[in-house]
Amino acid sequence: MFNVKQKSAFKAAFPYTLPILTGFLFLGIAYGIYMTSLGFSPIFPILMSLFIFAGSMEFVTANLLLSGFNPIGAFLLTLMVNARHLFYGLSMLDKYQAAGKVSPYLIFGMCDESFSINVSTPVPPDVSAGDFYFFITLLNHLYWVTGATIGALFGSMLPFYPQGLDFVMTALLIVIFLEQWLKEDDHQSALIGMGLTLISLLFFGSNRFVIPAMIAILLVLIPLSHQKEGLKE
C-alpha cells in the first residue's frame, strides 16, 4: 500500500501521535457514550467524528441537535467555537501548500493536536514533510473516529471509566508549547499569545474569550512582526 519512503515517514510520525492515541481514544469513547446516552443512533457520533473532526464542537453539536432547527445559527456558532483554526491556517500556509496532493486533507484534518505537532516538530531529513504531516493528520483522525465508534457501539459494556485521563491532551499541549519555547531564542510571541489569552479569559470568561484574544494578538503581532522583518533587512 505504501512505498518505502512513505513507510519511513510513518515510522517517524507514529511516536508523536502516541499521546493522542491515548487522549483521542478516551475522549472519543466519552463522546460516543455521551451521544448514545442522549438517544442518538451510533451512526451520528461515528459520522460526526469522521466529518466534523473538531472535538469540542462535536459536543456542542449534540446540544444543537436537541434544540430548535437553526442552520444559520449553527454555522455562526461553529465559526466562533473554531475561530482559533484561522491562526493555524495562517501559520501553516507555506508548509501545507508545499505538501502537494494531500494538502486539502491536511487542511481538512487540522485539529488542535495535528496542528500543534506539525507546526512544531522538525521533520527528519530523510522523510518527506508532506508524508510526515499526512500520517500525523491521518493517525489522529483515525484515533478519534475509532474512539467515537467504540464508545457509540460498546460504551454501555465498558467496565469502568478512567477519571482524569483526558489530562493527557493538556499535558501534550504544554509539552509542545515548551518544546517550541526551548527551541526559540525570542519568547516575545509565545508570551504575547499566552498573556493576552489569559487576560482575555479573565476578562470575558471561558465561553467567549477566544475571539477577543485572537484580535488582541493580531493587533500586537502584526506591527511587531513587521518591525522585526524590517530589522532583518
Binding site: D94, I176, I192
Partner: peptide, 17 residues
C-alpha cells in the same frame, strides 16, 4: 511576517484554551 511569529502565539493561546 505574521506567519513566522504566529505559531508560538497560537500554541500559547492553545495552552490557556
Amino acid at each position: 511576517s505574521l506567519g513566522k511569529v504566529l505559531p508560538s502565539a497560537a500554541l500559547g493561546l492553545l495552552v490557556i484554551y
